[in-house]
Design a protein around this nucleic acid. Structure first.
Length: 597
RNA sequence: GCGCCUAUGGUGAAAUGGAUAUCACAACUGACUUCGGAUCAGUCGUUCUGGGUUCGAGUCCUGGUAGGCGCACCA
């Protein structure tokens, strides 16, 4: 309904512009900054003032007069103002009718067909088996999940995927660290073959009372320390990689064992977050295939070989990019080598139109190089590949300045720790107010903690760096996920009170009262989703939800919904609409709603 | 050295080139404890800097300052 009105206004405006002599140009309808300016506005008159050689205001007046005469349904008035805006005022019926649209479309309300028929592959968080997941991974997970939800909501078919970097030196360090430091007695040899026969002589994560991924991290840290101190151990670890690559069955047993531990722990955190993938790529399955592509490119003269045997790109001239090595002088592959193979694999497996990588900004150059090389090899067009970076998550040092998280300095903040701390705060509050029994408090505390943390990470632009501070960053007051949920709970509570009726009927008012701003804000949700999709950032939605919650709470404080008047049903319709929009918006953020707090 | 990114109240943030820059936190002052007060109302206080483009700039271009990141055989 609202969409029909805005589209008609746009069409009619375009028609008028063409008649006036402006052939091209897109007519954009924006939301107004204030209710006094109506619901929508256009700057079309100012944009074409130069071409038409008339003053913007004059054009605006003529355009407004024309639109008023077109008898556009739902449009009450079109008014030209100051520099040259034309403001549009919708009829009360149209705004009230919108409530029924929301109720009718229910969970589909807000969806669009911006990317209908397209197939996207989105790669996000590739957890490292040697490190428990920290806040950087969290941001990646949430940004990625948001993009996936947006694309789905705009009609695209989405395949989400990830790469498990499960081979190489890092995992070999874990294997060594485990063998050397997790044995139950000092006289047990640090030997793979011995381990295979006497596995029970080593500690398990349970025996160490550690979450499996933390156990693995511990192995890695201890292994790394030995390597730094002793070149012989470094040699031992390198040898492990070589033997692994040769397919040695005993080493593979150990490799499988530590990886299973790592991913068991990681999966526990991921399932807490609700993070899943449609497809997991295992590096060990495709990393060798990249060499074939490099060979092919070399023969085609796309790449060049250095005197020492290493293979180099030719990107400087065509793409203006710094060249990079594709194959080491010893013939082994690099990160980019396997990524070439994987990109082709993804395109072919899923017949993808567009591919997205959600990866930190430090990979920016590497991504550009990958895209260019893939284009040279005919794997796909560079423009179909998108790197979506996100800002760093840092901590605050003792002077309040930004400090990067570093595993070595022990300043990494883990996802589980943050969630647990926020949950503890929430549960403490429950206890203070004597609200829920332990079981309910646990479930609700977890949901609210997730909502608070996710919202805190998603409410600002994804490229904005963030300095993390549990106290400040994960607010459960003010601009927070809990605030939005609280507004939502209120809508549900009122609705419960009247017995969750299936149907409500009311007569639309002839004059709007306190609810005017709320009705106006409800108009904009669809536009916000469209914008978020175009920007591939859900923060627009988070901001909108705060605005809507705030409007609702203000209205709620001034108005009694269940007052037994003839307005009651109408007010219930508003409550229902707000609830639906909040729920749909939160769902795009990956936040589950709750019925009570 | 070259390249990329960032700079908004005391703090954390918002603002497709649009109208008087919007919120929250903190501080201070208030509100029938209600259809759920984890709420509502109020006070206080902002676009790093020089130039340019534009009818109009926090936003675009350019010089500078400050910070972050990257630049070939690591991942």
């Amino acid at each position: 309904m609202i969409r029909t009105i805005t589209e008609t206004i746009q069409d009619e405006t375009k028609k008028w512009l063409i008649a006036a002599g402006v052939a091209e140009g897109v007519v954009v309808l924006d939301r107004t900054i204030q209710p006094e300016f109506g619901e929508y506005t256009t700057n079309a008159a100012m944009r074409c003032a130069k071409i038409l050689g008339r003053s913007p205001f004059e054009i605006a007046e003529a355009l407004a007069a024309f639109l008023r005469q077109q008898g556009i349904g739902g449009l009450a008035d079109a008014v030209a103002v100051k520099p040259g805006f034309v403001n549009f005022y919708l009829t009360i019926e149209a705004k009230v009718q919108h409530l029924s649209t929301i109720r009718g479309e229910d969970t589909d309300f807000g969806k669009n067909n911006y990317h209908a028929g397209e197939k996207w592959v989105v790669e996000y968080i590739s957890p490292n088996p040697n490190k428990a997941m920290h806040l950087g991974h969290l941001r990646n997970a949430l940004v990625g999940a948001g993009i996936i939800e947006l694309l789905k909501a705009s009609g695209a078919t989405v395949v989400s995927d990830t790469v498990y970097n499960n081979r190489g030196i890092a995992i070999a360090k874990v294997m060594y660290g485990y063998l050397a430091h997790m044995k139950q007695a000092a006289n047990i040899p640090t030997d793979v073959a011995y381990w295979v026969e006497h596995q029970s002589e080593w500690f398990t994560p349970e025996e160490k009372n550690l979450k499996p991924d933390l156990f693995v991290t511990e192995c890695y840290v201890l292994g790394e320390r030995d390597i730094q101190a002793n070149p012989e151990i470094d040699q031992f670890v390198r040898q492990l990689v070589v033997v692994w690559e040769a397919g040695d069955t005993t080493v593979w047993k150990l490799w499988r064992y530590v990886l299973t531990l790592a991913y068991t722990g990681i999966d526990r955190t991921l399932s807490r977050l609700g993070t899943t993938w449609d497809k997991v790529w295992y590096e060990h399955e495709h990393y060798q295939k990249g060499k074939d592509y490099v060979e092919k490119g070399l023969q085609a003269g796309i790449f060049r070989q250095l005197a020492d045997g290493a293979v180099l790109t030719n990107l400087e001239e065509t793409y203006g990019l710094t060249d990079t090595v594709l194959l080491k002088n010893d013939g082994t592959s690099l990160y980019i080598t396997q990524d070439i193979a994987l990109t082709d694999l993804k395109k072919k497996t899923y017949e993808a139109d567009k591919l997205i990588w959600v990866i930190g900004p430090e990979q920016s150059l590497a991504m550009k190089q990958l895209f260019a090389v893939c284009e040279q090899l005919g794997i796909g067009k560079r423009t179909d590949f998108t790197h979506v970076p996100y800002g760093y998550v840092g901590l605050r040092d003792e002077f309040g300045a930004f400090k990067k998280m570093a595993s070595r300095a022990g300043t990494v903040v883990l996802i589980d720790d943050v969630l647990d701390e926020v949950k503890l705060n929430i549960k403490k509050r429950f206890t203070e107010e004597g609200k829920h029994d332990e079981a309910t408090a646990e479930i609700l505390g977890e949901k609210l903690a997730l909502a608070a943390v996710k919202f805190a990470f998603l409410r600002s632009d994804r490229e904005q760096g963030m300095t993390f501070d549990v106290e400040q960053s994960v607010d459960i007051h003010g601009d927070s996920g809990v605030y939005v949920l609280y507004a939502y709970v209120r809508t549900k509570s009122i609705w419960r009170k009247v017995g969750n009726p299936k149907e409500i009927s009311y007569i639309a008012p002839t004059v709007l009262g306190e609810e005017a701003d709320l009705l106006r804000t409800l108009l904009y949700f669809e536009g916000v989703v469209t914008k978020a999709t175009a920007d591939l950032s859900v923060h627009h939605i988070a901001q909108y939800l705060l605005e809507l919650s705030s409007e609702f709470n203000r209205w709620y404080a001034r108005e009694t919904v269940l007052d037994g008047s003839d307005q009651e049903q109408y007010k219930l319709a508003i409550v229902a609409a707000v609830g639906t929009v909040l729920e749909n918006g939160l769902s795009l953020l990956g936040i589950e709603t709750v019925e009570e707090i």
